[in-house]
Write a protein that binds this DNA or RNA. Structure first.
Length: 745
RNA sequence: GGGCCCGUCGCCUAGCCAGGACAGGGCGCCGGCCUUCUAAGCCGGAGGUCCCGGGUUCAAAUCCCGGCGGGCCCGCCA
């Protein structure tokens, strides 16, 4: 690609400036601004590359276009035939189309792979610089679900890509063991354990803790919601009384007769056995119906608005309550013992939250007893994470704990340092707030970071002296640069945390760590949406990666039976294809866009299989041709290819490639740009798309162009070369995408 | 209330930043092709107001403005 395209572009600059009698500089400018661009043609019949010249031609009369075109064709052939391999040029409707000799391109590519120049070239970009990729970092309170899975796969592929580009990559998992979520789980675990509840032997550990967390949280939330429904209800009733009085006083009952009747009825009914949500619904309707007329009265209007406002809140809380209630039903039925012991221990949300706060506080102050419980639970869950991720071939260089003395020490340092700046102030409660708005006035970096939004303020230390996630995150970032020696850091974190990540950067910048702030990259990705399911870790509603992998295996198994009649083939093929499809699924959409998945159509995600299948096919051709195992004997393979190259070189014969062969060569050449673009724009889905495209094109080639059975020895040699390069490119892609390298299916 | 992102065949998605030739793929659907490198494949077909309306331009899915619809963020949560 780029080599040929660059070459032709360079030639075009000269040709165009001569023909249109302008300076080279002005043509170059048109190219650099993208006004002129050499692109692949939409149809191979038109040639390989084309360029729209309308921008230059619009000053000329249409009748002279043909003449100009002819001149251009001759000129470009002369300028680029030898140099760039342009063998044909045509002028059509203002487009200059060129056909390139692909045989030379293919020869070049084969040589590059044989001498490993491709890898050397790619690895020059990182040149050994150390980068940290932090990913997954899921709260250790429930198993990894499909959302965390997207994070894991994106992070893993980014790490693999960076490695391929020559960076020294350190992958880290940040363990949020000091947050409220872990404290809540710990609280639940303490209750369950003191009640003698044990994990069922066959339950996977992270899933078990996920249940404890969900039940604990659900019980607390339900009590909290009950109390807030009560409070809102009370205030609604007192507002209702006031409204009735007001109506009576103003003797406007006549005017609002119907409303008064309904209001009175509602008020009376509250004295009997009644259904609050239903009554309030009625009240809401009545107020809405008369809202317009009521709003005309300056005394009644504010009252009605308050009622409507309160009822809106009531409704919201009620919906939330129903959600948690449904979760409670499900959880209590499935885990009756665990549920009842937690239920009897969690008497009020106030008490529970106090206990949870206490756990956080003790943990942060280094209380060994509570820390050992937290560490035990966290470690267990992390083991669960590791076993899930290892199935997907994802591993970490290290785990960093929030509760570690290094990070807590740095967190204190951050608080102390920022407190000495003029951007921090101590609130009445004792909490410390950072005012980034005023920092934005002094630093354009901070202003630009949040632009066009306000930078805002945030709390960096609670009134009880404990730190917040953002504080510890800033500390962790310093840890990454200082202790881990990173020169660049990528945080693979969901978009929801965009603001928090900016706050971290701004904080570091204000503290004088400007280069660290600039070298901290937030690799944002959007959520995974399951069709028809509202996922919530807090309610224990999620599609876990463990389940997804199992479902995917079933899909693969079924299609094996469908296509072959029997699940033949090597043993681990099913699980490996499931892994390939799962990774592809999570990678298939641009990271910044929502990935919506219909679980009932899971089996339709087969991009992984498509790639694997092409890879296996390429191998089988090479295996049959050279009588060796391509993956096990790369040296033997190279020497065979070298023989073919010598054979081709000695005959000096040019070869016209078929359409299938040409299109395949075109794609093969794109490896480097694809990887670079994916890296530059952090659009990792491009790599997958490229791999799928390549696999599909290889299938077409495979169908049309026999290799082993080809009688003509020269044709066979060229095709073997093409298969070899395809095999090598696919190998690189599987590496970066983290897909298994299957030998046979 | 303020800010950000997204809207492309029945479904999913690429292209948009750097505007160009009939808007690419995949899934699903319909019709063909297995004695030849394993057909999880290949060939052909149907299917589109590129959310809507203006503007800029020789040229708009792409750029600008205004709507509509969906998601996310604005916690002493993480």
């Amino acid at each position: 690609m780029s080599k040929i395209r660059d070459c032709i572009t360079r030639a075009l600059v000269g040709v165009l400036s001569d023909t249109f009698k302008t300076t080279r500089e002005s043509i170059e400018k048109l190219f650099s601004t993208g006004r002129l661009k050499l692109t692949p043609t939409p149809d191979p019949k038109l040639g390989d590359y084309g360029i729209s010249l309308h921008i230059l031609l619009k000053n000329y009369d249409k009748s002279s276009w043909e003449e100009i075109g002819l001149k251009l064709c001759n000129a470009i052939l002369e300028a680029a035939r030898e140099e760039c391999g342009v063998e044909k040029a045509e002028f059509i409707n203002g487009y200059l189309n060129m056909t390139v000799s692909h045989d030379r391109v293919l020869l070049d590519l084969a040589k590059l792979f044989l001498n490993n120049e491709i890898s050397r070239d790619l690895s020059g970009i990182g040149a050994g610089r150390k980068v940290i990729v932090e990913h997954t970092s899921a709260n250790p309170v429930h198993p990894l679900h499909i959302g965390s899975g997207r994070n894991s796969v994106l992070g893993d592929v980014l790490a693999r890509l960076l490695k391929k580009l020559g960076f020294t990559v350190d992958t880290r998992f940040y363990v949020n063991d000091l947050g409220r979520q872990v404290a809540t789980l710990t609280y639940g675990v303490q209750i369950a354990e003191s009640a003698g509840i044990r994990k069922p032997d066959d339950a996977k550990i992270d899933h078990w803790y996920g249940v404890i967390y969900a039940i604990t949280n659900t019980l607390i939330e339900l009590d909290k919601l009950r109390s807030s429904l009560n409070n809102i209800g009370d205030s609604v009733l007192s507002l209702l009384r006031k409204l009735l009085e007001a109506l009576r006083e103003k003797s406007k009952q006549g005017e609002f007769l119907e409303l008064s009747l309904i209001l009175t009825e509602i008020q009376e009914k509250t004295k009997f056995v009644h259904n609050s949500p239903l009554l309030f619904k009625k009240l809401y309707k009545a107020c809405r119906v008369h809202a317009k007329k009521l709003s005309e009265d300056p005394d009644l209007a504010p009252l009605v608005n308050q009622i409507l406002d309160a009822l809106g809140k009531y409704r919201e809380a009620w919906i939330e309550y129903k959600r948690f209630h449904r979760a409670e039903m499900r959880l209590s039925t499935t885990y009756p013992h665990l549920y009842s012991s937690l239920k009897s221990a969690i008497k009020s949300y106030v008490e529970a939250e106090d206990s949870i706060k206490e756990i956080t506080k003790r943990a942060e102050s280094g209380d060994e007893e509570i820390l050992s419980t937290i560490r035990r639970v966290t470690q267990d869950i992390l083991e669960g994470f590791k076993s899930t991720l290892s199935k997907l071939d994802i591993a970490f260089n290290g785990f960093d704990f929030e509760s570690s003395s290094e990070i807590l020490g740095l967190a204190r340092e951050v608080v102390n340092k920022i407190s000495r700046t003029k951007y921090a102030r101590v609130l009445e409660s004792g909490a410390v707030e950072v005012d980034l708005n005023s920092a934005a006035q002094d630093y354009s970096y901070v202003r630009d970071l949040f632009y066009p939004d306000q930078a805002g303020r945030f709390i960096i230390m609670r009134s009880d002296g404990t730190t917040l996630y953002t504080t510890r995150d800033a500390a962790y970032t310093l840890y990454k640069f200082r202790a881990l020696g990173a020169s660049e850091v990528y945080n693979v974190i969901a978009v929801e945390q965009e603001r928090e990540q900016k706050q971290v950067k701004a904080t570091l910048y204000v503290l004088g760590y400007d280069s660290e702030a600039e070298k901290l990259h937030h690799f944002m990705y959007e959520m995974v949406q399951l069709k028809g399911v509202r996922m919530s870790g807090r309610r224990g509603v999620y599609y876990t990666m463990d389940e997804l992998l199992l479902d995917m295996e079933e899909c693969v198994y079924r299609s094996l039976i469908r296509e072959r009649g029997a699940p033949a083939g090597p043993e681990d093929v099913i699980s490996k294809l499931a892994v390939a499809n799962t990774r592809s699924l999570l990678l298939s959409v641009e990271p910044g866009k929502v990935l919506s998945l219909d679980p009932s159509k899971l089996c339709e995600y087969e991009q992984g299989t498509i790639i694997e299948y092409a890879f296996v096919r390429a191998q089988s051709i090479l295996r049959n041709a050279f009588n060796l195992e391509p993956l096990e004997d790369p040296v033997g393979l190279s020497s065979k290819i070298r023989e073919i190259l010598e054979q081709i070189n000695s005959s000096f014969e040019r070869r016209a490639l078929s359409v299938e062969e040409k299109l395949l060569v075109e794609l093969l050449v794109d490896l480097k740009t694809t990887l670079l673009e994916a890296y530059r724009e952090l659009k990792l889905n491009r790599i997958l798309e490229y791999a799928v495209k390549l696999a599909l094109q290889f299938n077409k080639f495979y169908e049309k162009c026999p290799v082993i059975g080809e009688r003509n020895e020269k044709t066979k040699a060229w095709r073997l070369l093409l298969v070899y390069v395809t095999h090598r490119v696919l190998l690189e892609l599987l590496d970066v995408l983290g897909l298994p390298k299957l030998k046979r299916i």
